[in-house]
Simulated assay, not measured.
Amino acid sequence: MKKVVLVVATLSLGFTFAQEAPKLVIPKVEVTPKNSWFKAGLTAGVPMSDTKDVASFNVGVDVRAQYLFTAHFAVGFASGYNHFFGKDEVEDFGVIPLAGFARYYFQKEGLFIGTDFGFGILSNVENNDGGLYINPQIGYHNRDWNFYGYYQNTFTDDINIRSLGLGATYNIRFK
């Protein structure tokens, strides 16, 4: 009988203190030329760390789709291609990023910081498909252009592919 009373008391207390789970409310998102656009541009950098032993420099194409949540905070998707020019007996290779990104714009025009985070697919590299891709950036933006410095790192099993460079993208707005 003591066990029955203990079970009933425990269940009663559990039901008494149980709270209703919060409901997930997804705000309506309206994509407009004022809050969403594509970015396309070019990058150039110098390999760092172990990568400088196998590549002399890199150039790339940067493509993005951005959604501006507020006047200061944006998220989106980033991709493109970064070509590393091999040196000595090493063949050229590349990184294709598949990443999400976040950016914080301090003002309507001026300084921004952000980072890409995703997966970097390696091209022309045997026995290595790629790895974690991180690309922090700091730069200047206006209505049409973004100019930035970056430190790109793709973590793989064999080597971390690192590059320090500059990039520029042009904002392609929806009509």
Rank of each mutant, 00 (worst) to 15 (best):
M1W: 03
V5Q: 11
L6Y: 10
V7I: 15
L11N: 12
L13G: 14
F15R: 06
Q19G: 04
E20A: 12
A21H: 07
A21N: 10
P22K: 11
V25R: 11
I26T: 11
I26L: 15
P27S: 08
V29Y: 11
P33S: 06
P33D: 04
P33I: 09
K34G: 00
N35A: 01
S36A: 14
A40M: 12
G45M: 05
P47F: 07
P47V: 09
P47R: 04
M48Y: 02
T51Y: 07
V54D: 06
V54H: 02
A55Q: 02
V59W: 11
V61G: 13
V61C: 08
V61W: 02
D62K: 14
V63E: 05
V63C: 03
V63A: 13
A65R: 01
A65E: 04
A65G: 12
Y67W: 02
T70H: 04
H72L: 06
A74Q: 07
A74I: 01
G76T: 07
F77G: 15
Y81R: 06
Y81K: 05
Y81H: 12
N82V: 13
F84S: 04
F84Q: 08
F84I: 11
F85Y: 15
V90L: 10
V90S: 13
E91T: 15
F93A: 06
G94H: 15
V95E: 08
I96K: 03
P97N: 07
A99M: 13
G100Q: 10
F101D: 02
R103L: 02
R103D: 14
Y105L: 10
F106A: 05
F106K: 06
F112W: 01
F112A: 06
G114V: 09
T115F: 12
G118F: 12
F119S: 03
G120H: 07
G120Y: 07
S123Q: 13
S123R: 10
S123W: 09
V125S: 09
N127Y: 10
D129N: 13
D129I: 09
G130T: 06
G130R: 01
L132N: 04
I134E: 03
I134M: 09
P136N: 03
P136W: 07
P136F: 10
Q137E: 14
Y140V: 01
R143H: 05
D144L: 05
D144W: 09
F147K: 00
F147R: 06
Y148A: 11
T154M: 02
F155L: 13
F155K: 10
N160T: 08
I161C: 06
I161V: 15
S163A: 11
S163N: 12
S163F: 07
G165K: 03
G167Q: 00
A168W: 01
T169R: 08
T169K: 03
Y170P: 00
Y170W: 08
N171L: 00
I172C: 01
I172Q: 00
R173K: 12
F174D: 00
